[in-house]
């Protein structure tokens, strides 16, 4: 198979080598070809992008966490069957068909990774950030989670055990961080504003109230 236009120095028959080497042009070539064949609608692509840029993101997960902090019954239901609870809030969907929420305590800190690819709870947190998909995070989170957390500026007390969840199936994990001190009087919106994306992956903590 000819691929002399490509920068590979090896001989293999992967069809992707037929595409232009520049990735932006590669996408454009595929999109154009599939559109010509009547297989994709550019307006549908725009709708997909709009969904993950503007509609589905960490604010969904933050709402779930804040309610769990504020409402003991909600928290209990969430820990028992998160999929059902988040579905009622409208946060069910692609890459979030089976959700488990794991609770941080003074004894145990939870942290999520996908060593095999990039599994992440899309309906609650959106598209994963670059670091979550990086080789370094995938390789190191299971072997040296404390060093990785230090790179996020997080140092856990020695008495806190770490449990790293490797997302190897279709179960998607959301970390329920501990409620920060000094938040007793805050309403749901103020609590939601304290919840960071990284605190729900386990690589960070919620913000403290101003």
């Amino acid at each position: 198979m000819p691929h002399d236009h490509h920068d590979h120095d090896h001989d293999h028959d992967h069809p992707h080598a037929l595409l232009p080497p520049d990735p932006a042009l590669r996408v454009k070539a595929l999109e154009t070809l599939l559109s010509q064949k009547g297989l994709i609608d550019p307006a549908a692509l725009d709708a997909i992008i709009d969904t993950y840029e503007n509609k589905i993101g960490p604010k969904n997960g933050a709402h779930v966490v804040a309610r769990a902090w504020a409402e003991p019954d909600f928290k209990q239901a969430l820990l028992a069957d998160a999929t059902a609870v988040v579905a009622e809030l409208g946060f069910y969907g692609r890459q979030g068909e089976h959700i488990v929420v794991v609770e941080n305590t003074p004894q145990c800190h939870n942290m999520v990774v996908c060593t095999l690819c990039s599994c992440y709870p899309w309906p609650l947190l959106g598209i994963p950030p670059a670091w979550y998909k990086s080789d370094a995070y995938r390789a190191r989170a299971v072997r040296e989670p404390r060093k990785v957390l230090a790179e996020f500026g997080l140092k856990l007390p020695e008495e806190t055990r770490i449990r790293v969840w490797d997302s190897t199936a279709e179960i998607r994990y959301l970390v329920l961080p501990m409620r920060p001190a000094g938040t007793e009087g805050l309403d749901l919106q103020a609590l939601t504003d304290l919840v960071t994306r990284d605190s729900m992956v386990g690589t960070g903590l919620p913000q403290s109230p101003a």
């Binding site: 990774v113 060593t115 095999l116 950030p129 670059a130 670091w131 990086s134 080789d135 370094a136 995070y137 995938r138 390789a139 190191r140 299971v142 072997r143 990785v148 790179e151 996020f152 490797d166 960071t196 994306r197 990284d198 690589t203 960070g204």
Partner: peptide, 14 residues
Amino acid sequence: MGGRLGYGPVQPQP
């Protein structure tokens, strides 16, 4: 990739 050695720091971009 789980557990492989040789990678540099994770670079979080909040």
